[in-house]
């Protein structure tokens, strides 16, 4: 045996075996089916499928809307985390608990309620409609739904870092004559960058793949409000398995890159913190 030194506890071989077996059966083998199916396409067919103008329009919409929604989440997530950590006000604990609602609420439910609210005759939509702004069935509606879906990520990554932040630094800065903006910009914000970046990437990755809430609010018009996951669904319904798989492979590659980026940021900031403490 290779790594015998810390085997004080029983069950290593058994649990590792079960873990790898279950992981392979449920995740790895099914996923590899995507690669096998794509391999049945020639390179030209593959390229033609993934660079078709309707598909490219869906990438632009998916990336654009996810980017804007994740950006909104960074700004408001930081604000919410700040208010929750630093201030006390009535209803704070309820608000804190409700932040996770988008994690717990099924996406289909979120989809139908946001569509109803933001459609031209809905409670909120009618308000915007009086200014001539249409929300549901436009890219704006997609951004609203994606903002809802990604809301908890930035709050939950920033909150613990903000709790650990030393208030004395801010006091020192303001005693030394820094304005509130300067204190925020140069003292509070820098230690939050890794958490903000992680939160942004998590919200962005989640938004890219989101399907359930968007399918209701977007209206699903090709070239205009058709997101990439929906296009995969359409191709599947037309039994164009190869086409669906080719687009799925593009999305999978991007998801993997994002996953490694997120893990990389976390690994880097952990190491950075550890060396800073030393």
């Amino acid at each position: 045996m290779l790594f015998k030194q810390n085997r004080a506890l029983p069950g290593f071989g058994l649990t590792l075996g079960i873990t790898l077996l279950y992981l392979s059966l449920i995740v790895l083998i099914p996923l590899s089916g995507v690669l096998i199916q794509t391999a049945s396409l020639s390179w030209e067919q593959f390229w033609e499928t993934i660079s078709d103008s309707r598909v490219v329009a869906s990438y632009q919409l998916s990336f654009g809307a996810s980017f804007v929604a994740a950006g909104i989440n960074v700004i408001f997530g930081l604000l919410i985390a700040w208010v929750l950590v630093r201030y006390s006000f009535p209803g704070k604990r309820v608000i804190d608990g409700l932040i996770d609602l988008p994690f717990a609420l099924p996406t289909a439910v979120a989809g139908i309620v946001l569509t109803t609210l933001y459609s031209p005759n809905g409670w909120i939509g009618s308000f915007f409609d009086s200014f001539g702004i249409k929300v549901a069935f436009t890219p704006l509606g997609i951004i609203i739904a994606l903002t809802f879906i990604g809301l908890p990520f930035v709050v939950r990554t920033v909150q613990p870092v903000l709790e650990d932040l030393d208030k004395e630094m801010e006091e020192a800065a303001s005693i030394l004559g820094a304005s509130r903006w300067q204190t925020f910009r140069f003292v509070i914000l820098p230690p939050l960058y890794p958490a903000l970046l992680t939160g942004f990437s998590l919200a962005f990755a989640r938004a890219l793949g989101e399907y359930g809430s968007i399918v209701f609010i977007s209206g699903n018009m090709p070239m205009k409000t058709e997101i990439t996951p929906l296009l995969i669904m359409t191709k599947l319904e037309q039994f164009d398995y190869a086409g669906a798989t080719a687009i799925a492979l593009v999305m999978l590659t991007i998801s993997f890159l994002l996953l490694f980026l997120i893990n990389g940021i976390q690994w880097f900031s952990q190491r950075h913190q550890r060396s800073a403490r030393k």
């Binding site: 873990t19 790898l20 992981l23 995740v27 790895l28 099914p30 996923l31 089916g33 995507v34 096998i36 199916q37 996406t107 990755a205 890219l208 793949g209 989101e210 399907y211 359930g212 996951p229 929906l230 995969i232 669904m233 599947l236 039994f239 398995y241 669906a244 798989t245 799925a248 999305m251 999978l252 998801s255 993997f256 994002l258 996953l259 490694f260 893990n263």
Partner: peptide
């Protein structure tokens, strides 16, 4: 392995369904 366990979180739900259609569907 820990990263691999996270995979289903990173994948679009539509693709999660698609992989089973590719395996077990009539053309799968």
């Amino acid at each position: 392995i820990i990263t691999l366990i996270d995979l289903p979180f990173a994948i679009s739900p539509v693709i999660s369904g698609l992989i089973f259609v590719l395996l077990f569907g009539t053309q799968g």
